[in-house]
């Protein structure tokens, strides 16, 4: 069994109404990975977020049902088995990150440049899928095709039964051009009948390009939501991020747009600049500044700054 993990400590300062500067024990995540045979593998992640505290009071023979003073989150972010039948077709069942775009998968603080993720991530495609997937890599001339096709319970059905008989389905396709330093382009789709019978159809596109010491990464996603009664509405988001690696430093900027519901003054834009210092491959110091612009005229724009120490506990 390989055990690894990561942890991060942040200091926040924000001009948002009501926000106070302070420290945040954001994550403490533990990964358990076992290669049971050449084909069979197990993987799980248990995440402790915001320094969780859970203590039930024991009063004689009874335990209080209320968890007074509890805070934080403990979350089984992943738990799955994989049968690696062939590089072209591998099978996985359990809870896994939704194969959609880039940041849905590559989201861990030691390996992304900001503690804040782009706004539309987890809003259009769900964070995780409880279900099954087949995925693989196929050679295509000098290129490679990565694919994922999955079936799951859908949003709002964690761990146990689905709220309806319809299953969520989705797929992701990426083309890799290994003759270049790094180039990946791809697309994702997702369809779900949610527990309130609202239909959700989402599509997305992504690109990641490394050239010289620059990395350009961008994603776009949009979803059409069709409730049982009332009008359908769209949500959409995109970001473009440019990184420049110079020795142990990474400098970057990102433009990030999200509209949670069209025609409702719900647009928001994050203009972000950031710098990372990679002490080692496992320790990163980050400073990031986000300027937030809100479409809603009743809401004030604000700034958000985060300094953080992020440590990968490698295996």
């Amino acid at each position: 069994m390989n055990i690894s993990g990561y942890t991060d400590l942040e200091y926040h300062d924000s001009s948002a109404p009501g926000a106070e500067p302070g420290f945040r024990l954001h994550h403490m995540s533990l990964f358990f990975e076992k290669r049971i045979t050449d084909q069979w593998r197990f993987f799980s992640e248990i995440e402790y977020e915001d320094g969780p505290f859970i203590e039930y009071n024991y009063n004689g023979s009874n335990v209080d049902s209320e968890c007074e003073g509890c805070y934080g989150k403990i979350f089984l972010e992943a738990m799955n088995f994989t049968y690696a039948w062939d590089p072209r077709a591998q099978f996985r069942g359990g809870r896994f990150f939704t194969p959609a775009g880039i940041w849905s998968i590559d989201h861990y603080p030691p390996f992304v440049p900001t503690q804040l993720r782009p706004q539309h991530i987890r809003e259009i495609f769900p964070q995780v899928v409880d279900g099954v997937t087949v995925f693989g890599t196929l050679p295509l001339g000098g290129m490679f095709v990565n694919y994922d096709i999955y079936l799951g319970n859908g949003e709002g059905n964690p761990g146990s039964e689905d709220g309806n008989s319809e299953k969520a389905t989705g797929a992701k396709l990426s083309l890799l051009f290994p003759a270049l330093k790094y180039l990946e382009i791809g697309a994702s789709i997702y369809n779900d009948t949610q527990n309130d019978d609202q239909e959700k159809e989402a599509i997305g596109a992504h690109l990641k390009l490394k050239i010289w010491d620059f990395t350009l990464q961008g994603e776009y996603a949009t979803a059409t939501n069709t409730p049982v009664s009332g009008s359908s509405f769209d949500q959409s988001g995109y970001y473009a991020q440019l990184l420049y690696d110079i020795g142990k430093w990474t400098l970057g900027g990102r433009y990030d747009f999200y509209d949670a519901q069209e025609n409702t003054q719900s647009e928001s834009i994050y203009n972000s600049v950031f710098v990372n210092y990679h002490v080692t491959e496992a320790i990163v110091l980050k400073l990031e500044h986000h300027q937030v612009e809100l479409e809603d005229p009743a809401a004030e724009d604000y700034d958000h700054t985060i300094g953080s120490v992020v440590i990968y506990l490698g295996n």
Partner: peptide, 12 residues
């Protein structure tokens, strides 16, 4: 090395 570590914890 960081890229490989990322692939490990994303289970990819």
């Amino acid at each position: 090395a960081a890229d490989e570590s990322n692939r490990k914890i994303t289970n990819t």
